[in-house]
Design a protein around this nucleic acid. Structure first.
Lengths: 113, 113
DNA sequence: AGAACACCTGAAGAGCTATTCATATGTTCA
DNA sequence: TGAACATATGAATAGCTCTTCAGGTGTTCT
């Protein structure tokens, strides 16, 4: 650790900063999006609205077991929601914020290069 | 792998889907935000505009070595940019998209609970 | 009831990642 | 020039994560 060239600004920044707790929750959210399989699942849901596990496995070209594991993480975190219809379970994005986040990020990606 | 209850919708979804390559790049971006230390660094920069490594280490309460490693990842990915001033190196968020992403996510977090 | 189906779960291993320690580079100032 | 400072880098280790495999639950249909 070293000295502070601008102690005031550092102090001011620390005050308005996201708390360590908030930062952890934010990082947790981002980490969940930070996997190619989960990202593809989420963007599939963003496009399709609602899909069952087998549809998702087919769209993303991953084992249904892997999809199931991935969805559990997303479900637990409240990023996706599910509904049962017969033997199938349909998944959807849980809220508008997540949709915006995914959309904005995709735009970012596409404008960059 | 199982059958497709709605083959048409799956096919349509797969077409408009983010490509595996795009998904990977998006996941790479999110993964970088998906660590509490890096998240705190980024939000510190979002608030302060520009900070040197020692300021950041102080604000986030992490070793300056750890900060340096974290910043290298963010720099390499084009998420932050740096400028040297004497022996100090000032970091800032690289573009407006990242700022929006961070801002939107924080709002999301704060509205949720 | 039993078979087929859609999905879930737990355990285990391979691979990745973050932090630390030791050391190196580049800069200022006396 | 040399000492002090700010930051960067490489190697190593501990911890986490994703996928797979094997088996389990709940549902439909005959």
């Amino acid at each position: 650790m070293v000295q502070e060239p601008d102690a005031e600004r550092v102090a001011a920044t620390r005050d308005r900063l996201v708390t360590p707790d908030e930062a952890t929750r934010l990082a947790d959210l981002f980490r969940l999006l930070g996997d190619a399989t989960r990202a593809r699942l989420l963007y599939a849901l963003l496009e399709a609205g609602e899909l069952c596990v087998c549809d998702l496995a087919d769209a993303v070209e991953v084992t249904d077991t892997a999809v199931s594991h991935a969805l559990r993480l997303l479900r637990t975190a409240g990023i996706v929601a599910s509904r049962r219809a017969g033997r199938m379970i349909y998944y959807r994005l849980a809220d508008a914020h997540v949709r915006m986040l995914l959309d904005l990020s995709r735009e970012h990606m596409r404008e960059e290069r």
